[in-house]
Structures are given as structure tokens and as C-alpha cells.
């Protein structure tokens, strides 16, 4: 043999799915919601999306360059973080706020803990909560002059439900409501969710249990009103959070049973925050608080190995 053969440990063949594929699939899945947001709220939304993603990628690049680590911006994970963060912004937000959030998400939440796969909170959501606490006025202003949501009628459906006003379910499903750029249209979000489910990027376990738990909780403690439950489920970013943020691989349990526990925990926290919390929204806080419980959930839900069921491990 003129040339040496390549030797390595088995298995020798690999599936075609790579981390990059997965990240780009998640990005593709968010396009319908992003497109609807831009269509409804106007050009500032587009600017927010592009610049937030740019801020995330750039801060990852600069950090890794400065730390002399391999540059990993091509894996698409920073783009996903940027997109999720941008879609969580009110449409008329000054662009520097989400850009600041992007830097916070990548540097503080992701890279300082070791980069991709090591962060214990969803970077985009942690950044959103950071911005909510720092700039609550701007972050809670859902004025959208383009389609006539002024500062008075710019109350989100959740705020309206809470103050006893009625909301139009059809408008909720289509998305003709004030809210953040990406959370408003249930239809657009579900198109993306179906795409991810079909591509097997996510499993339906966490989102369905999460949404189901919220629905049951609000039905039991919110006055046994199915219409109210439906309005709650379709608003306040629950669909967005359940399919795109709670399913984040890094910050959700990897054990099958743990995912069930995680979904229920998310549902309970969201229900509590929505009914009795200071703000009518609860999805973001529920998710990052549940993120913190993941290591404990995993520890107690370690599956029994095949053939060891019914015995002491």
C-alpha cells in the first residue's frame, strides 16, 4: 500500500445532521413570525432584527478573538440568539437597546460560562429580562403608529384581559394586536413550529406539556372559562416561548422524564405569574427560572438503564 489508511474508532459513518443544520433550521422556522412582525410593525422591526443579530455575531467574534479561542460564529447559534432576542422586542424600541441586549446575551450569559452548550440560562431570554429590568418604560411601550396602536390602545391583550376588557380571539390568532415583533401571530409561529417538528429539530414533548399545563392551571384558577383560557394561550408570547425558547437544547433537561417535569414546571410558573404577578406576562421569567432548575431535574430523572428496571441502580 503506497498510502497509509485512515484509522479511527467505530462507528465509521455519521448521520448528515450537524449543529449548523439544526441552527439554520431554527432560523428558518422563525422567518414566518419575523416576516409577519416586519409586515405589521414596519421598518424599525426589520432594523431591530438585523442589528440585534449583527450585534450577537460580532460580540461572539470579538470575544473569541480576544480570548484566542476558535471562532465559532459560523455555527449559527449566535444568529439564533440574536433572532430570538429581536423577536422579543417591542416594535418601536430604539435599536441600541436590543443591540446592548445582544452583547449581554453573548458575552455575559453565553461566553463567560464557556460558550455554546455551557450556558445555564437561555441567553436571549436572560438578556430580555436584563433589558426589562433596566429599561422598563421603553421595553413595555407597545405603541405601533404604523397600524394605529397608540399609547392608549397599545395595551397588550394580556393587559387588557387583566383589566377586564374583552379581546378578539381572531385578531390574536392572526396577530393583529400590539406586542413584541415576533410573538403576535399565532399562525406564523405555528408554521415555524410545524417546520421544526417535521424536521425533528424539536420534540413536541416540552411545548405541548407546557401549554397544556398553562391551560389547565388557568382554567382551574381563572374561573373555569374556556374562552379566557384560549385567549391566554394565544397571547403573551406563550406559543413563541413554548416552541422556540423552552425547547432550547442547552437549557432544557436532556432526560425524557426531565422534559416532562420541566414542561409542567414552566406551565405552573407561567400560570402563577400571569394570575398573580406584578406584570401580566410571565413566559420569559418562567423559562429562565426553570432553566436554573434543569441540573436538579436531570439528577432526579436519570432513566433506568435497559434491563435494570425495577432494581436498585
Amino acid at each position: 500500500m503506497e498510502r497509509l489508511l485512515h484509522v479511527s474508532s467505530s462507528p465509521h459513518v455519521r448521520d448528515t445532521v450537524t449543529t449548523n443544520n439544526i441552527m439554520y433550521d431554527v432560523l428558518i422556522a422563525m422567518i414566518p413570525a419575523a416576516a409577519f412582525g416586519v409586515y405589521q410593525f414596519g421598518l424599525n422591526s426589520l432594523l431591530v432584527i438585523i442589528l440585534t443579530m449583527a450585534a450577537c455575531v460580532l460580540s461572539e467574534y470579538i470575544y473569541e478573538k480576544a480570548m484566542k479561542r476558535p471562532i465559532t460564529i459560523a455555527d449559527g447559534s449566535a444568529l439564533v440568539t440574536g433572532m430570538i432576542l429581536a423577536l422579543n422586542m417591542p416594535p418601536e424600541i430604539p435599536v441600541w437597546i436590543p443591540m446592548l441586549g445582544g452583547v449581554f446575551a453573548i458575552i455575559v450569559v453565553k461566553q463567560l460560562y464557556g460558550g455554546l452548550g455551557q450556558n445555564f440560562m437561555n441567553p436571549a431570554l436572560a438578556a430580555r429580562c436584563f433589558l426589562l429590568l433596566s429599561f422598563s418604560g421603553l421595553m413595555n411601550n407597545f405603541t405601533a403608529s404604523g397600524i394605529g396602536f397608540d399609547s392608549v390602545s397599545g395595551a397588550t391583550p394580556l393587559a387588557m384581559i387583566r383589566s377586564g376588557e374583552s379581546v378578539d380571539l381572531a385578531a390574536l390568532v392572526i396577530g393583529r394586536i400590539p406586542g413584541t415583533i415576533g410573538e403576535v401571530s399565532v399562525i406564523a409561529l405555528l408554521i415555524g413550529a410545524v417546520y421544526m417538528l417535521v424536521k425533528k429539530v424539536i420534540s413536541p414533548r416540552i411545548p405541548l406539556i407546557y401549554i397544556g399545563t398553562v391551560a389547565v392551571f388557568l382554567f382551574l384558577f381563572g374561573g373555569f372559562d374556556p374562552y379566557y383560557v384560549l385567549c391566554e394561550v394565544c397571547s403573551g408570547g406563550l406559543i413563541f416561548g413554548a416552541f422556540f425558547m423552552a425547547t432550547d437544547y442547552v437549557t432544557s433537561p436532556i432526560t425524557p422524564k426531565g422534559q416532562v417535569v420541566f414542561g409542567i414546571l414552566l406551565g405552573l410558573l407561567t400560570g402563577i405569574f400571569r394570575l398573580w404577578g406584578a406584570s401580566p406576562e410571565g413566559v420569559s421569567y418562567a423559562i429562565i427560572l426553570s432553566n436554573l432548575c434543569v441540573p436538579m431535574i436531570e439528577r432526579v430523572t436519570l432513566p433506568k438503564a435497559f434491563g435494570k428496571e425495577g432494581k436498585k441502580a
Binding site: 455519521r14 439544526i22 465559532t72 455555527d75 460558550g115 452548550g117 455551557q118 432544557s252 436532556i254
Partner: peptide, 13 residues
């Protein structure tokens, strides 16, 4: 069977 460099675990399950 080209060798591919490993990257970080994303805990995809």
C-alpha cells in the same frame, strides 16, 4: 468516512 472535527455538545438529546 471523512474525519470531521468535533464541536461543542449542544445537548440536543
Amino acid at each position: 468516512v471523512a474525519a470531521q472535527a468535533p464541536t461543542a455538545c449542544i445537548r440536543c438529546g
